[in-house]
């Protein structure tokens, strides 16, 4: 298990990490969310010693992460980095060997992952000749090309088409199923909601929300109500204390209400105000949780 213990990092007056703590258990996919500049990349870099922390520790199974341990981790940085003139397979093999694989195992792993990621016919091409999406696949193959204990992926889905996103998502899920811990950041919240088991939201260097996704959704003090039909245009929700309109369209309205609210009473009030075509009462989505967490 990977654990951050009160990580703190300042760059002059800028606080990048402010006592951030989190955990990534083996076999769990952890979505690491936060606004731009919230400290995600700094935290991810600190796992590999790329950032010298002011305070706090990064632990793997209770021990500080050092060179030999970090070699068991795969890393896909936010700023993609590959040798442009190096052939694809050779590149993946090279990084696999740096991670400790012998030449035979490195070749086997490279061919396996390039096959899985749909690059079998480009193994001898130079990276610079590939499209952006295919270069991103090579980057993922580089981080996968040995049986890692932990995958750290900074924005792995940015710039990918939907098919590539699905392929990459499947691959990451399989790695978690094998037993690897996966920590990945993304601004595509619906995608993260589909993929992750746990969620960590960071803001201004502090972890403001964390836990299994279903647990944090249920634990929210709010519920969201969506009403479709004529009733959406009427102000019936004013009768409910604390109810707040979060989205409003011509024939639909979305409200945030107290978690203890009675859905039956809300539906009755809406129906009394006008015709109701559709009604939903649900815990917050990940996007709702994100907005709630970072606006505090």
């Amino acid at each position: 298990m990977l654990r951050f213990e009160r990580l703190t990092k300042r760059y002059g007056d800028v606080v990048a990490l402010d006592g951030a703590s989190l955990a990534v258990a083996s076999g769990r996919m952890v979505g690491f969310l936060g606004p731009n500049g919230s400290g995600k990349t700094t935290a991810m870099r600190s796992i590999f010693g790329l950032v010298r922390l002011d305070e706090g520790r990064v632990l793997w199974d209770g021990q500080p992460v050092e060179g030999s341990v970090a070699r068991r981790f795969g890393y896909m940085p936010e700023s993609r980095g590959l040798y442009p003139k190096m052939p694809v397979r050779e590149q993946v093999e090279y990084f696999a060997m740096l991670h400790g694989a012998d030449r035979t195992a490195a070749r086997r792993q490279a061919e396996h992952w390039l096959g899985v990621l749909g690059l079998s016919d480009r193994v001898d091409s130079r990276v610079e000749t590939l499209s952006h999406g295919n270069q991103q696949r090579v980057q993922l193959a580089v981080s996968l090309a040995f049986e890692s204990d932990l995958l750290v992926l900074d924005e792995p889905f940015s710039g990918l088409d939907p098919l590539a996103v699905r392929t990459m998502g499947d691959v990451i899920r399989q790695e978690a199923a094998r037993g690897a811990g996966v920590l990945f950041s993304s601004h595509q919240l619906d995608l993260v909601e589909d993929l992750c088991d746990d969620v960590v939201i960071i803001d201004h260097g502090r972890v403001v929300l964390s836990g299994p996704l279903e647990d944090v959704r249920s634990a929210s003090p709010h519920r969201y109500v969506e009403v479709r039909g004529e009733a959406a245009a009427e102000p019936w929700h004013r009768a409910f204390a604390g109810a707040e309109v979060v989205e409003e369209h011509q024939r639909s309205v979305r409200l945030r209400v107290d978690a203890k609210s009675d859905p039956g009473a809300i539906l009755a009030a809406a129906s009394a105000a006008g015709h109701v075509d559709g009604f939903r009462f649900e815990p917050p989505s990940l996007a709702d949780l994100f907005v709630e967490a970072v606006r505090r």
């Binding site: 790329l50 070699r71 981790f73 940085p77 700023s79 740096l98």
Partner: peptide
């Protein structure tokens, strides 16, 4: 400049 160094330094000193 091509940022490969970050991937390298994640695994070698």
């Amino acid at each position: 400049s091509n940022r490969v160094v970050e991937v390298l330094l994640a695994v070698v000193r």
